[in-house]
Every structure is written in C-alpha cells, then in structure tokens.
Design a protein around this nucleic acid. Sequence first.
DNA 1: ACCACTATTGCAATAGGTTGCAATAACTAG
DNA 2: CTAGTTATTGCAACCTATTGCAATAGTGGT
Lengths: 156, 156
Amino acid sequence: MSRIRSHSEPWGSIGERLRRRGLRWTPQRATVIEVLAEGDGHITAAQLVEQCRARDPATIPSTVHRTLDVLEELGLVRHGHAADGHEEFHVLPATEHGHLHCSACGASWEIGEARAIAVADAFRAADGFEIDIGHVTLVGLCRSCAALGSTPGRSD
Amino acid sequence: MSRIRSHSEPWGSIGERLRRRGLRWTPQRATVIEVLAEGDGHITAAQLVEQCRARDPATIPSTVHRTLDVLEELGLVRHGHAADGHEEFHVLPATEHGHLHCSACGASWEIGEARAIAVADAFRAADGFEIDIGHVTLVGLCRSCAALGSTPGRSD
DNA sequence: ACCACTATTGCAATAGGTTGCAATAACTAG
DNA sequence: CTAGTTATTGCAACCTATTGCAATAGTGGT
C-alpha cells in the first residue's frame, strides 16, 4: 500500500508515466511530488520550494518551477491565481470548486462542487462560455463584511 | 468644454481634490492623468508607463506606480487582474462589467452591465457574497473553442 | 514675494521569478 | 553491464516590479 495520505493512486506511477513520454524520473522531481502528495491540494510555488528544502536543502527554485510545468502538462496539477494574482497550484484529482476572497477582512474560502457546477451552468447558458471556475479567486465582500458596509481594502 | 474624450468631469478637478487632502499636483501626475483620461478605460501599469514616456521621456516607472496607488485611494481608478494575474487598471467612472478570457484561443472580451449584475445577484443570493465581478478576469473556453473540444492552453 | 514644511520624485538597491547554457546523470539499446 | 543520447539540473545573468532614502519642488502661511 501507499504510505502517502491522499491522491495516492495517480502519484504512484508517475515515474513510469514520465518515462513513457521520454521524460525522466529524478530525485528532485521525487521530492516535489512527495511534498505535493502529502499536502492539502493547494500550494504556491514559494511554499512548495520551502517544503522541498525541508527535505532537501539543495532544492533549487527554478527546478521546482520547471517540475510544476511538467506536472501540469501531465495533468497532475493545474495552476490558478490567488486573490492577488499570484500563481497557485491545485493538486489533482480534485473536485470542481472555486475560491472566494473577501477584500475587506482578507478571508478566503472555497465554494463546493455543487455551487461551482451551478455557476458554470449559468455561464454556459448565458454566454456559451465554458468557465474554469477554479482558475481564479473571485474577490468581493463576504456576507458579514458586506452587512457591515465595509469598504474593499487593498489586500491584493 | 473639456478637450478630453471621456470621463471628462471627474478628471478636471483632480488637482484641487489632491490639494484638499494635503497631496500635491505635480507635472508627473498630470502626465499620468492625461494618458488615463484619453484611454479606453483599461490599461496596465506597463502600458501606462510607455504612453507617459511618449509625452515625457523622463517618466519613471516607480512614480507611475505610486501615482496609480494614489488615484486608487482617491477612487479614480480601480485595479483588477488580467487572465495571467497581472495587474490592470480600470479607469472610472465605468459601468459594472466583467472580463472573460479564452485559454484556448487567447481572446478576451467583456460582459456587459446586465450580465455582470445578474452574476452578482446570483452570488449574493447563494452565498451572501458581494462579488466584485470586475476585479478578476474569468478564464475558460469561449463558445467556439468549447465546441471544437479545444484543450485549455497555458496562455497565462 | 518669500519661507518653511513635507509630499513627491528619481535613483539605487532589493526581491522574486524567469531564462540560457554547460555539466551532469537518467534512460535505452546493444 | 557498458556506452551513447539527451532530458534535466544548477548556476548565473537577467528582467520586472517594489522599497528606502536623500534631494527636489509644490503648498500654505506670513
């Protein structure tokens, strides 16, 4: 059995998947993937570099970035953008979901699959647009900040 | 009458508005505002720097960025994020609107006030979230790319 | 008109991420 | 198991955007 907590199935055979495409299985990539497999499915490149360094102090940022590019091509991660526009990565498999950010109190949270699909359906019906709801973090005011009449800040 | 094409009213008295707040009216700020007032209401900081240089080759990027911060505090511009997360500025006054970007063909376009309000209403009703629809560019597949079964690229 | 005050500028230094390239090492074939 | 091929790495140079600070120059008061 796998020793990793989650997403265990698709991660186990990555070495083979890489080799089948003429790519290579390296210790650096193994480190990146270990960290990704143990995380909660959301991570920024900077956080990933930091966590890789905990395992291998020789970790080089550019290698991590390039590994993420490769993993995205393989379909194992997808990048999105946080409220401030910075790149963040979603580790797959993940259910369809979205991110909301309150620009007044700075809170961020997710909307579940049902809501995400409802939003996507609404766009598809109205514009014929097949929205990738998870790609960007939607910004606005949360219920309580809106009720308080808070003004949007510049948290991003 | 004003010589500028659009947004003429709020821009005329900026010098006074700045001074009333203890801020100053400088030639550099005048250059930035001239360019903003003549544009179409959407601009990135880099584009703004470039256009300011056409008028004043001595334009310094950091000055432009800081001027934009001031104008945002005054409520004359609002920043948002393009599909790739880069900052872009909306010149006010502007009607509520949103931006869509197709990750397959790279096209970007706007959704009008009616659709923007409909989206905002839907979020308010479902989540109590007061979405700032114009803040981020929504990414996905346009009608024709979706119909062709295009795969999302990495244009961002 | 001048002065004092201080917001603003311009520059230099910094930070963060990206890119080019020679050296390394993973992989495949024999 | 060995050797050749070439993907990948690590480093350094680079680029864009941000920040600190001394010098400059708008402003309001006299």
